[in-house]
Design a protein around this nucleic acid. Structure first.
Lengths: 148, 148
DNA sequence: AGTTATAATGTTTGTGATTATCAAACAAAG
DNA sequence: CTTTGTTTGATAATCACAAACATTATAACT
């Protein structure tokens, strides 16, 4: 964990930004909740526990900054809120999501399933792919077995 | 076009809803702008030309209703607005999009590129896929040639 | 340490999209 | 025609987020 904070610090400094205490706490919260998909509000509340003086705008600014630096990915599952997801270290691409329509659970897929598809898009549609977002909507294993 | 309106009318009635004049005008606007990805506001303005008495709330309600019935897909390209896209008749799945990061153009891909990927997801992750959303972010052909 | 320039923060106020409310218009059924 | 449920349009409320701006912290000098 310390390693990853260190790495993020370097990324910030490379882009002429500082790792302020507020930013560090925000990053920590994101690391501690890596499996979740927190909204800005969620992050704000969790950060406030550790650093009560922080302002909401700072959290928004930090999330925006980290997104620009591709440390975070900003995602949208269709509820009215943006959610934030740490990009795995070294990952070129955004990872995929499985959203259960029954229980709302979100599972992540690390594996890159789209290499072939991207090749098709680049050739057939003459479109230079920089990134992708893929979400499957369906029924997760748990909910399938509950139904039986 | 009349056919498709007829089909939509039947879908509404099946779910105990009526095709009111306001809804019909909204559907017409969506059909006439099938290639675009209109926001609720866009739809409202276009509907107002044909039916000036209509209220904004009615348009929102109609779009919501058509989304529930899977006649429309509600999409989000990361600007702060929901956009609406008619589902192709008979299409099981949402179609894919290519979003250009330079000029913002959105191209659609009808072809279903994900059959193999879905099989993997169903098997390996025990997840029953009902639908998917796939968006590629990159540089479109036009913007690539402009850069040279 | 003191001074200054710059960056970052926190509070507060906007803003813009969407939703909720509610009375009025309409439609269907008895 | 009357009753009952639907749908509508105007308006107000909400909610996520962005902008503004004065204040505070930081870094680089002297």
């Amino acid at each position: 964990m310390e390693n990853r904070i260190q790495r993020i610090k370097e990324a910030l400094q490379e882009a002429q930004y500082k790792l302020t205490p507020q930013r560090e706490v925000t990053v920590k919260v994101l690391l501690e909740n890596e499996r979740d998909h927190l909204s800005a509000e969620d992050v704000f509340l969790k950060v406030k526990d550790k650093y009560p003086e922080i302002g909401l705008a700072t959290v928004y600014r930090t999330l925006e900054l980290l997104s620009e630096l591709k440390i975070l990915d900003k995602i949208n599952f269709g509820d009215g809120v943006s959610r934030y997801d740490l990009r795995k270290e070294g990952a070129k691409h955004f990872h995929h999501h499985l959203v259960c329509m029954e229980c709302g659970a979100v599972e992540e897929i690390e594996e890159d399933l789209l290499e072939d598809v991207e090749k098709i898009v680049e050739k057939e549609y003459n479109f230079k792919v920089m990134d992708h977002r893929l979400t499957f909507h369906g029924i997760c294993g748990d909910c399938q077995s509950k139904k039986d």
